[in-house]
Structure formats: C-alpha cells, structure tokens
Design a protein around this nucleic acid. Structure first.
Lengths: 217, 217
DNA sequence: GTCTATACTTGGATAGAC
DNA sequence: GTCTATCCAAGTATAGAC
C-alpha cells in the first residue's frame, strides 16, 4: 500500500522551482488546455518538459497529482475572493466584485480545472467527496458574507445564510460550467448586470456592507 | 468523410427493441453506472450483451452514440417537465414541482448522463456546443413559466424572464452536479424547503399561475 | 532524483467471414 | 446486419541504469 516517493512532511524546500512544483504547474496547464481526458502522465510531462516517470515517483498516481493541482488553484482563488469581496462596501459593490471574480475565474482557467476534475470524478472512487471538501471553504466564506449583508435587514432570520451560500455556489458553478461549454459569456455577463441593477434598487433595505476586515489569520 | 451504417431517414422501424434502441439504452445505462471515462464501446456492448463492432456500424463513433443517448434522455425529461409544471397552479405548487423534478432527475440518472457528457466535452471538439443546444429547450420552457408567473406582478419588466430562466437552469445544473458529487441530497432538499416557505410568503404579490395548457403541439 | 526502456492493459476502429 | 479477429494508438506503471 505504501507509495514510494518523498514524504511531504520531509521536504526541505518549497521553492517555486522544485520539481514537484513544476509538475503541479504542468498538470494545471494541461488540465486547462486538454481537459481531464487529455491530462495523462505523458501529456503533463510533455507540457512541463520533464520525464513521465517523475509523475509516479513524486505523486504515486496521476489522480493524486490532479488533486494536488486542484488544491493549488483552490487556495490561490480563495485568497483572491477574500481580497476582492472584503473591498466591497455596498451591495452594489458586492455584485461588482462577484462579476470581477467570475471573469477572473474564467480567464485564469481555475474553473476549467475544477470542471475537469469534476468531470473525471465518476471514474475515480472517492474523488467526488474530496472535491466537495475543497468547495466547503467557499461555502463558508460566502455564508459569512451573506451573514453580514443580511444582518439588520428584514430578511434576517427568514433566509438562512448557509442555504443562500450553497445556492450561490451552485449557481456560480453552473454558470461557469455552461459558459465554459459554449464559450459564450454574454448571457452570464447580462445576468450580473441585471443583478447589479436590482441590487441598487433594494440596497436601501440593507445596511452598508462595510469591510469587516479580519485582523488575525 | 461519409460514414457507413444505416441512414436515419431510411429506417423503417423505430421499434423499441431494434438494435439501435438496445445500443442507446445500453449506452445510457453504462454512462450512469461507470461515468464518461468508463463508457467505452466495449463496456457498452458488455452492458447490452451485443457485439462491440455494432456500435461503430450503427453510430460510426462512440461520441455520436453518446450524443444520441443525451438526446434520448433530454427528450424524455422535457416531456416530464411539461407534465409536472403544467399541473402547478400556484407559486408554492411550482416550487413543489421543482423539488419533485429535482428528485426524479437525480433518481432517473438523467442528470448523471448530462453531467458525464459535460465532463467529457472538453476532450471532444464541438461537443460543448451540442450540449448547450440541447439545454436550450429547457431555458425556453423555464422562461415561459416565469413569464406566466411574473405577468401582472410588480416585478414584470424589472426582471427579464430569459435571464431568470438561465439563472434557474444554471442553479439547477450546479445543484445536481454537487449533489451527485458527494451523494448527499440533504442540502439541496433543505434549499427547496426554504424556497417553498418563501414562496408562500410572497405568493400574494403574484397572481395564481394557473395551467395555461397548450392545446396544440 | 532523473532517465531509458519496457511490460502490460484498454480502447477505437476496421476487415472480412458469415 | 452481426460476428470474429486483429491492428494500432495511448495510457499506467515499474525496473533498473545512471
């Protein structure tokens, strides 16, 4: 059962040019370009310009590598979400922030990576659960944001923030997947615009969102 | 370029036990059970108990068969959507109908088929567009429904039904995909329950939905 | 840690007998 | 229209030299 390769805990360097790093980056790039089905050990190696056998030496299996790749982009995007959303002071700005994130996610290819891993999840037992686990921080983050927005409004206590958050994440995922399917982002963009208009209309019902910045971790 | 196999237009029978039919059903079953990656011509043939070469004789390529399979389930589900939604007379009943459809879609495996084909779409050029095209009828159907619901309410002219419909379809797709990922439908079910409660609250703003049954096709 | 070479497996697709 | 047999390409994974 025990896989070969270096243990994560024992690694000395986490320099960005370590071989592991190169492999993870090549995996992400290949996922974006060729999709889950096209992301074989050989293809990843070709992308990164290293030997195919290294994938197995460092990660044991291709799937393990792909999960690591998903971790990587998820972390990076989460940091960005916090940054953008915490800068939003009003409901309208929040919708603007969401649009900005939507576009960035699309362009950075992050959602493509997510979608591809979701795509492949049915052929790999246990992968589905791990993907959901990685989406959970987004749910909690969105929930916190809605909690702030709803506080003091007539809707407080009427709409559970967690459910609103889960719906938002699902809507977001669905939108990105559909956009990514036909490559046409006009529908989604129009949606955000309408949401923006509605937000300014209902804004008086809500207090200003403010940036409740976290001072600690 | 010209593929072998019988031309669709020339087929005499569309009996449910024709070979084509058997193959399509076996493809759907295999997609549900093994996912896109596991749905090879050999696997489909094993599921249906026929010869692998028949897939290529009748459909030319595996992808062509999968598209046909998607067509099949899409048509079947669309018929069911009409049936259930047209029986809903109030906003609350509409939400109930949506919950019922959600559960049926999940259990029938239809969304699994859709999700799997979406999953594989990045490895097959042009597949994405064809999937989107097959979702378009759902958008129009949802749009019609919202049109009826919004008519006469204060929101008419404020919320474009088409955008609401696209958002709904995206939300629905996202919900099914996430549910399907972790196999836990409690979150989604709770969401529908909350939506139901909110619907009864806001119902007075809307007129009764009624069944505006179509008498023609 | 990295490379070459290779064993093994699965899958798409076709030829040709029936 | 269906079957057997087969070719060929691509992928995972490992052994072993360096």
């Amino acid at each position: 059962m025990a896989k070969p390769g270096p243990r994560k805990a024992l690694r000395k360097q986490s320099r960005s040019d370590s071989t592991r790093e190169q492999i993870v980056r090549a995996a992400i790039e290949t996922l974006k370009r060729d999709g889950f089905a096209g992301t074989s050990a050989r293809a990843i190696a070709a992308t990164g310009g290293f030997n195919q056998a290294l994938v197995f030496y460092h990660f044991g299996t291709v799937n393990e590598l792909l999960l690591t790749a998903l971790d990587r982009t998820s972390e990076e995007r989460m940091a960005r979400y916090r940054e953008v959303v915490e800068g939003a002071a009003s409901l309208g700005e929040l919708v603007d922030a969401a649009l900005r994130i939507y576009r960035e996610d699309l362009e950075s290819g992050h959602i493509k990576v997510l979608a591809e891993v979701i795509a492949g999840s049915s052929s790999v037992p246990g992968l589905g659960e791990q993907i959901v686990a990685r989406m959970e921080p987004w749910v909690r983050f969105t929930e916190d944001t809605f909690h702030r927005v709803l506080a003091g409004s007539p809707f407080e206590g009427l709409i559970p923030p967690e459910q609103l958050a889960r719906a938002t994440v699902a809507l977001y995922l669905g939108l990105e997947i559909i956009t990514h399917l036909d490559g046409d982002r006009t529908h989604a963009t129009q949606l955000f615009e309408t949401a923006g208009r509605l937000a300014t209309l209902v804004a008086p019902i809500f207090k200003s969102v403010g940036l409740q910045e976290r001072r600690d971790s």
